[in-house]
Design a protein around this nucleic acid. Structure first.
Lengths: 336, 336
DNA sequence: ATGAAAGCGCTAACAT
DNA sequence: ATGTTAGCGCTTTCAT
C-alpha cells in the first residue's frame, strides 16, 4: 500500500507538506498543492483514516444503530444518513440489532466504545440508563431519529399530533366508532412512538367526545402480519368499528387485507388510515399521514456533523419535522 | 479514553503482556490473564482498532456495497452478513449506491481504498473493469452475492435454473401462453440476474416447445411499480398470456395488482409466479421460487472471514445455494 | 512468562 | 512556504 512517504518522495517534499496539501490547509503554495495532488492521484494514494485518526482523534466515521435494517422505514433513514455522510467524506458503520438483546448489549458495550466513530446515530429506540452511560463515556455527539432522549440531539415527528391528525380525519368523515391498532407497549419498552400514537388516538377521541372501548385498542407487531392479526380481533367486537387507525402503514396494509378477508369492503364498510407514507402506500391507495423518512436521516446526520465540527460546546438540537395528511382511497364516510 | 497503558498500570505489568492477555495469546499465565481481563472490564477498556490496525494491518471491519438498502432483499442480505460479522467481532461499513453513478465512483475509488476494511462484499452488481482494478489494488478478499465475478468468491442462486423452475411450474399446470416481466437490460448492465432469468425463461419455453412472442417479454424496474407497468403492457397484447413469470416477487405483486385492475382474476384468468419468497409473498399468497436471502449474506461473510484468516493463498469459492418452488394461490391451471 | 523498544502512517507543534 | 520532530495506541520482535 502506498503511504504518504511515497508521495513525499515522489514530489521531493516532506510528509508534512504533503499532508497539508492533501487536506487543503493554508500555507502551501498553489504550485506545490497541484503537484502533490497529481502525484497522489498517480500513485492511487488515499490517506489511512486509522493513522490519521490516531493522532487527530477523528475517525471520519459515524456509527448507526438500527432496530431492523430489513424494514423499509429504517432502510430509508439509513439511506438518507449515508448519503449525506458520504458526500462529506464520512463512512457509516451499521449495527443492526434485529431484536436480539445480546446483539444490543454487545453493540453498546463493545463495538460503539472502540473509538471507531466520531458520532452515533440511534434509530427509534430509547437507550436504557446503562446504554446512555456508555454513550456518554464515549464522549462523542449522539443523535436519535424517532425518539427524544434528554441530552441528545434528535429528529422526529410529533407522534402525538400525527396520531391526532389521522383520527381527526376519520372523525371529520363522520366516523364515531374508531379502532386503534398499534405496537406492543410491553417487551419493547424502548420504542416511544407506539405509546405516543396511542395517546394521540385517545386524545383525539376525547376531544371529539367519542366513546372509547378497550376492545378497540389492539396491539401487536409493527408489521403487515401484526396489522392483520390485530384487525381480525378488532373486527370480532360488537359493535365493530367503522374505521381503523393503524400506527404504521405496514399495519394498515395488514388491516385492509383483514377487512377484505372478512367479506367487508374498504372503505365502504371500514375505513383504514396509517402513518408513514410507506413506499407501497400509494400502490395500496392507502390514506395516511406522511412523514419525511429519508430526510430525517439526512438531517440527523447533518446535526451530528455540525456537532463534530463545533466540538463539545455544541448544544443538542431537538428538531420536529412536519407530517402531512394524505387522503387516498381507504378512507370515506361511514354508511348509515 | 482509557488506553492500554491504564490497564497495564492497574495490574502492574507491561503493555505487551496486557495486549497478549487480552487477545488470548499463549505465554501468559492464567492468573495474569484473569487479572488483566478484570482490570480491563473495570476500566471499560476496549482496544482501539485504529491503533491495532496500524501495526497489525488488520482493521476488523468489512465494507459492504449495496445497490439499495431500502429494498427488503438487500436489507436481508446485509442483516445476514452483519449478524455473522458482529458475532466475530467485526464491524460493517455500509455503502449504499442508491442508483447514483457519482456515489458509485466515489465508493470504489475513494472510500474502499482507504485501508479501512479487511474485505469487501458486493451485492448484486457486476463491477466494471475499472472497479475490479481498484478492488484488486486493495489487495483484500472480495466476495459478491447475486453475481459471479471471475477472481472473486461469490454466493448466489442459479438464476437460469431458478427461472426455468418457475416457468416449468406454469407449463406443468398446462399454460402455453406465458409472459415474462423482468429488469431492464440496458442502463443497468451491471446486474447479471435479470439477463439470466430472461434466458432461463426462454430456455424453458423452448424446452416445452412453446411459441415465444417478443411482446410477451416486457422489462422495467425491479419494483412493485415496475411490475405493475410491465404487466399492463403484457395484458394489452392479443392473445394475452394466461400466465406471467415475474423476475422478482415485488414485480409479481405489481403484476397481481395489474391483473385485478383489468377486471381479471388471479389465478383463474391469469397465473402469476415470482422469485425470492419476499417477506410479503405469503401475505399475498404468491407462488414463487424461494431463495435463502439472509443466509446468503451470512455465508458470504463467512467466506470473507475465512479468506482474511487464511491469507492471500485462499482460493475464491463460487457457491450456489438451492432454490425451492413454493406453490401458493396465484398459480393454477388455465381455463379453457 | 514477562518486559523494553521499535515502529505502523499519519498529524501537530515548533522550527526555519 | 516548508521541514523536523514527537507521538497518537497499539503490536511485534527480541531480550531476559
Amino acid at each position: 500500500m502506498t503511504s504518504i512517504k511515497d508521495v513525499a518522495r515522489e514530489v521531493g517534499m516532506s510528509t508534512a507538506t504533503v499532508s497539508r496539501a492533501l487536506r487543503g490547509l493554508p500555507r502551501v503554495s498553489e504550485d506545490t498543492r497541484l503537484r502533490v495532488l497529481k502525484a497522489a492521484e498517480r500513485l492511487d494514494y488515499v490517506a489511512s483514516p486509522a493513522a490519521a485518526g490516531l493522532v487527530s482523534g477523528q475517525t471520519r466515521a459515524v456509527g448507526v444503530v438500527v432496530p431492523f435494517v430489513t424494514r423499509w422505514f429504517y432502510g430509508s433513514v439509513v439511506h438518507g444518513a449515508e448519503e449525506l455522510l458520504r458526500e462529506r467524506g464520512y463512512d457509516l458503520l451499521l449495527y443492526n440489532l434485529a431484536g436480539d438483546q445480546q446483539a444490543r448489549h454487545r453493540v453498546f458495550q463493545t463495538h460503539l466504545l472502540r473509538k471507531r466513530v466520531d458520532a452515533v446515530l440511534i434509530l427509534s429506540l430509547t437507550p436504557s440508563a446503562e446504554e446512555i452511560a456508555s454513550l456518554n463515556r464515549l464522549d462523542r455527539p449522539v443523535a436519535t431519529v424517532g425518539a427524544v432522549v434528554p441530552g441528545f440531539s434528535s429528529v422526529s415527528i410529533d407522534d402525538l399530533a400525527t396520531a391526532r391528525t389521522a383520527v381527526q380525519h376519520l372523525v371529520d368523515l363522520g366516523h364515531r366508532r374508531i379502532g386503534y391498532i398499534g405496537g406492543d407497549l410491553e417487551g419493547q419498552l424502548d420504542f416511544s412512538a407506539p405509546l405516543d400514537r396511542l395517546r394521540g388516538y385517545r386524545e383525539a377521541m376525547a376531544a371529539a367526545r367519542l366513546r372509547r372501548n378497550p376492545a378497540w385498542e389492539v396491539t401487536g407487531d409493527f408489521t403487515v402480519r401484526g396489522g392483520l392479526a390485530a384487525t381480525r380481533l378488532l373486527l370480532a367486537t360488537t359493535p365493530r368499528p367503522t374505521a381503523i387507525f393503524a400506527a404504521s402503514d405496514e399495519m394498515a396494509i395488514g388491516a385492509v387485507h383483514a377487512v377484505r378477508e372478512t367479506g367487508l369492503r374498504v372503505p365502504e364498510d371500514v375505513s383504514v388510515i396509517g402513518i408513514d407514507d410507506h413506499e407501497m402506500a400509494e400502490f395500496f391507495e392507502l390514506s395516511t399521514v406522511a412523514q419525511p423518512v429519508h430526510e430525517q436521516g439526512r438531517v440527523a446526520a447533518q446535526l451530528l456533523l455540525q456537532a463534530i465540527e463545533h466540538g463539545p460546546a455544541f448544544e443538542p438540537a431537538v428538531l420536529t419535522v412536519p407530517t402531512r395528511l394524505v387522503v387516498r382511497r381507504t378512507t370515506a364516510p361511514p354508511r348509515h
